[in-house]
Design a protein around this nucleic acid. Structure first.
Lengths: 403, 403
DNA sequence: TTTAGTTAGTCTTATGGCCAAACAAATGAC
DNA sequence: GTCATTTGTTTGGCCATAAGACTAACTAAA
């Protein structure tokens, strides 16, 4: 079935074509190498139709034929794989002290991963645009040198990004109402590819949904673990942004009216009791945001050494985290909640108690089938997801123009 | 654009046709009476295509031609409206002390609304199936007498319903693992129409999304206000049920670890501090569930009289409710949260403080555009939504067979 | 009363994309 | 060497939409 997902929009055969091109493309990504006959058998499309679709995709260099099968009865099949070489998708992540750029090919293979220090915490959005544009131009020129066409660029920002790509508030960066998508497009002077901006948690969720070990889950939630805590929500196979794009702001769910004061001014917010700030407040109260990574390393070291107070602290954080995740699981019933950011190195001491707390609070039998897992994509999840956002457009059938 | 919303499913012409039939049908529902030319101009479909689609819809008696326009320059247009007469969709709601059945036509006009007392709280699921089947048969025979074809039947159940229509847990009814959809289909002996089962909050949300004053909102949350508190979530224009169908279980989000004990055994759950139980515990601690309606009437009367302790109680409940809704708004960023059930009569004393509390806690600027509103659909929202669930199938292009 | 202008809806033809089935190609099994 | 098997292409048919000509039915104004 076809579902026009945003209201009454009519369909015609170009939509059928786009849908089916996307079906074939996704099938090959998930089952490569495979033959045309495999595709026809599994998708239900007619053999002739598959041949025509594959021809289109080969023309546009999205697919490539590899060798033939051997030693089987019948005519050998020509195998198809994604063609990694001619395209690139760029993802950029801005943060408090660095900008990361990654480029991936259609398969999701990382082509480059550049990290460049940048005083995000003390720079204006305008300065960030200049820095990002410079970095983006270098990435684009590298990709061009490799004879790759850039399909698009997406920027991940830790903050509230509305549906138009305007950064409404980015507390850690000190930005307000910055039209990042527009300004960056201007700074790149007619780049010839779309420039998008989205929230970092949303994009990390997209990365997990596309590349992570739970990529089959149509309903998943990714939780960032920095000083701030945010979530990206995938339901029914797509990122759900809410009415204005601000979904997933779980950091300020109030868990305890008698809890510690949060930087938002209220008490007992999830991020005040289970964010990195809650840990630093008790281990390194004077640390600046840029020292976060070092300090967490130190916490990990002390936990490994079995220091009692640290273990107790982490258990406490884990329990609060579990309570927050129970709220998520009760409200959204995802198949999996994936913990990212600094929750990853801290996971050995957090997850067990968080899970226990969560399962104890989820109403649905068996916790609604919701598991609590740890991200395997590392710190670059948001940047990777930003690139994945670009590939999503291709996946939904908007193929790059034929050359 | 067309989006195949559940994974790689290929499309063909029948899908295009179905999509466009649905587009026309929805357009007429929202803009009746209107002409073929209006449809073509607004949807972008070709005039000839619209004529063909409309002919199909008239053949199947989903549309009807009414008179002509007059006193306008040019050839008068033949106006089209939904044809209410030949079909019916049935919704049934089971509850602690009654079963409600409603039938609506394609326009959503209520054809009948029967309420029949039933000791749901002390009956088994099997007994309920017998009672529902009896009621359903009477409704069907009435509809048949009116020469209407029944398009389907949906049952709304206050409890956890999985994606297959099995009732996993219904605490107020005391049911567990009841295959209601299957059993009811059997009891109706090949009814010739689909029988579905879903959660009452989900279906009430669907009713609001289709018939309510905020029917244009693609992102809305409906909150039930009974002893239990649950939510139905519409995001991006569709009901989102989560991985197993248990989304929206907000009643046991923990708002205060030091709060009163909830019937689930834990402390400070939303429904323990802002559900009807929280009110009854302080006004009529010995009331049985079936007296709920009377007791709430009494609370309303006393609030109208300005009784201090009642007003204070309601303000307290309102504040807790607002905190819970802040969690909802932060996580989902809906355009509107609609309060239903007994929140409706209590709204004059609840909403102002709930709203204040909510806006104070939502991180997004301007509360993310999220409003807190009161349902206007009355107690029958779930049953109405159950019927709406049937109409949704028609709307997505699965038209009833031609006669 | 004629004529021009306007809008509604149908008819004809073309195009694009899918499917079914026949067919060609390339292999293994016997 | 022949047959069975599997792959992928070709052919023809079908279906739905688009474009534009055409018919229909009205108002306005000369």
């Amino acid at each position: 079935m076809i579902t026009s997902h945003n209201g009454p929009q009519p369909a015609d055969f170009t939509d059928v074509r786009a849908t089916n091109l996307a079906v074939v493309l996704r099938f090959v990504r998930e089952n490569a190498p495979c033959s045309r006959a495999d595709i026809a058998a599994s998708t239900g499309l007619n053999k002739a139709t598959v041949s025509s679709l594959v021809a289109d995709l080969i023309d546009r260099r999205l697919l490539r034929e590899t060798g033939l099968t051997e030693h089987r009865v019948g005519r050998p099949a020509t195998m198809l794989v994604l063609d990694g070489s001619p395209y690139a998708a760029i993802g950029i992540e801005v943060n408090v002290d660095y900008i990361t750029a990654v480029a991936v090919d259609l398969k999701g293979e990382e082509l480059l991963n550049w990290r460049r220090s940048f005083p995000g915490g003390t720079s204006s959005a305008g300065q960030a645009v200049v820095a990002m544009a410079a970095l983006a131009r270098r990435v684009v020129s590298r990709m061009t040198k490799e004879a790759r066409q850039v399909l698009g660029l997406t920027v991940a920002v830790p903050g509230l990004v509305d549906v138009n790509g305007t950064v409404r508030v980015a507390p850690n960066l000190g930005w307000r109402d910055a039209d990042l998508a527009g300004d960056l497009t201007k700074a790149l002077r007619d780049p010839g590819f779309p420039v998008l901006v989205d929230n970092d948690a949303n994009l990390a969720a997209l990365a997990e949904h596309r590349f992570g070990p739970h990529r089959n889950a149509a309903n998943l939630v990714y939780v960032t673990g920095e000083v701030g805590v945010g979530a990206g929500i995938v339901m029914d196979g797509r990122l759900r942004r809410g009415g204005q794009g601000y979904s997933g702001e779980i950091g300020h769910i109030e868990l305890d009216p008698a809890g510690p004061t949060c930087r938002c001014g209220r008490r007992g917010c999830l991020e005040a009791v289970a964010g990195m700030g809650a840990i630093l407040a008790r281990t390194a109260p004077d640390a600046s945001p840029s020292e976060l990574e070092l300090e967490i390393d130190e916490v990990v070291r002390r936990a490994r050494n079995g220091e009692r107070d640290i273990l107790a602290l982490l258990e406490d954080v884990g329990r609060h985290l579990g309570r927050g995740m129970a709220a998520v699981a009760n409200m959204l019933n995802p198949e999996v909640v994936i913990l990212g950011g600094y929750y990853v190195p801290l996971a050995p001491w957090l997850v067990a108690c968080a899970e226990e707390e969560m399962y104890g609070r989820v109403l649905a039998p068996g916790g609604g089938g919701c598991r609590l897992e740890v991200s395997t994509l590392g710190y670059g999840a948001a940047a990777l997801g930003a690139a994945a956002r670009v590939l999503d457009s291709v996946d939904s059938g908007r193929l790059p123009a034929q050359r």
